[in-house]
Simulated scan of single mutants.
Amino acid sequence: MNSKRPRTIQIFLPTGDPSGIRIAEQTTSIIRLIEVPRSDIADFLKMDESKQVGLYFLISGDSKDELYIGQSGEVGSRLMQHHKDGKKDWERALVLISLTNNLTQTHVLYLESLSIEKAKACQRFELLNGNNGQKPHTPIPLKADCDEIHEVGGLLLATLGYPIFEPLTEQVSSETEQVFFCNRAGSDAKGIYTNEGMVVLKGSSAPMVTKRKTEQRFYDKRDELLNKGVIVKDGDRFVFQRDYLFQTPSGASMFLLLATSNGWVDWKTDKGMTLHDHQGRTIEVADAQI
């Protein structure tokens, strides 16, 4: 997102089930995002919002990291088509509509193209779209509206747990973000610790096999990212082709070492300070300023 500022988001559970349909809104916006589990399509079709023009996102994959972006003049009917044809393996749909029902086909065509472009740039999800959408001629006032809708929609998506348009890291610089290194057992990796986990940076590498005692699950995860093109084999090493988020520092270091690891110790600054000690120092400084 372009701007970080305090917001108020409301999440409504129409059935009272937190794993069922969820409706998210920013209190000062007319944009509404509806999360629809595939098992609840029938309930969504009963809602007035299903008859509207809308933008939608289909989430799939074992790790919920596969994404298809589409648009429709009647979004409920389009989701039902996706459900019936069986061509797309998806589990949850996220539907973006207007509370005032004023989105047009031009709006959603532009938003579809913009969303595909932004999702590709952020690289958080494996995008299943075969093309870049159709970006129609868009008058400047309408484009400005769409850009605002996209910003609010991205915020609502992230709030519900789908940060499709959130960069993995801010612009990397020595002044704004601390880079950590994992150099054990032949690894040559750089990472940035964020509030979501450890982002291993593009170009990081490690041996394809380990001599340490290990388990098959580590190789399974390696092969999964090889198949997705996140890493590629380069001789007897694998190399990251893009930045990639692991939910924990230890998850990142275990992937690199192909064995058990304490990431709070194995990730270090260029001065040799462990992630654990660096975070402790940061907390001490913040506490002293209170």
Rank of each mutant, 00 (worst) to 15 (best):
Y68V: 08
S63N: 12
A121K: 09
K118V: 13
D43I: 11
K118S: 11
T159F: 14
P141A: 10
H83Q: 13
G153D: 02
N102H: 15
M47D: 09
Q81E: 09
D40I: 05
E35C: 03
P163R: 12
S60R: 13
K143T: 14
A93H: 06
Q123L: 13
Q26T: 01
Q105C: 04
E91M: 03
D62L: 09
Y68T: 08
E126D: 06
C122W: 03
G61S: 04
T100N: 15
H83W: 08
L109V: 07
N131Q: 14
P37F: 05
I41W: 05
S115R: 02
C146V: 10
T159I: 12
G54A: 01
A24M: 01
R38V: 07
K84E: 06
L99A: 10
W90M: 04
K143I: 09
E151W: 04
T106C: 14
V108E: 11
E66M: 06
T159M: 14
D85M: 06
H82K: 07
D43Y: 09
E126A: 06
I116M: 02
L160C: 09
K88T: 14
E112Q: 12
L96I: 13
L45K: 13
S39H: 02
L45T: 09
S77C: 05
H150E: 15
L109N: 15
L127Y: 00
L99M: 10
I116K: 00
T138D: 10
L109W: 07
E49M: 07
E25D: 05
L156R: 01
S115L: 04
F125H: 11
H150F: 15
M80H: 11
V75D: 00
G133I: 15
Y162G: 03
T28N: 05
D40R: 12
S115W: 00
H82T: 08
I149Y: 15
E91H: 09
Q26F: 01
M80Q: 09
G20C: 02
G70T: 02
K120T: 07
D147V: 10
F57Y: 15
L103D: 03
T138S: 11
L103F: 13
P139Q: 15
L99V: 05
G130P: 04
Y110M: 10
L160Y: 07
A42N: 15
D89Y: 07
K51E: 10
D85K: 06
L94P: 08
L67A: 08
S60C: 07
I140E: 13
V152Q: 09
S72A: 14
A158L: 03
L45I: 10
L155S: 13
I59P: 00
V108K: 04
L94C: 14
D89R: 08
A24R: 01
I116P: 00
I116V: 07
I21P: 06
L67G: 02
I140H: 13
L45G: 03
E91D: 06
L67H: 04
N101W: 10
D85V: 02
S115E: 03
A144L: 12
V108T: 13
R78E: 06
R32T: 02
N101D: 14
G73L: 01
E25F: 07
C122V: 06
K64T: 05
F125M: 12
S63Q: 14
L45F: 08
I97N: 04
Q26K: 04
L109Y: 12
L156Q: 03
A42V: 14
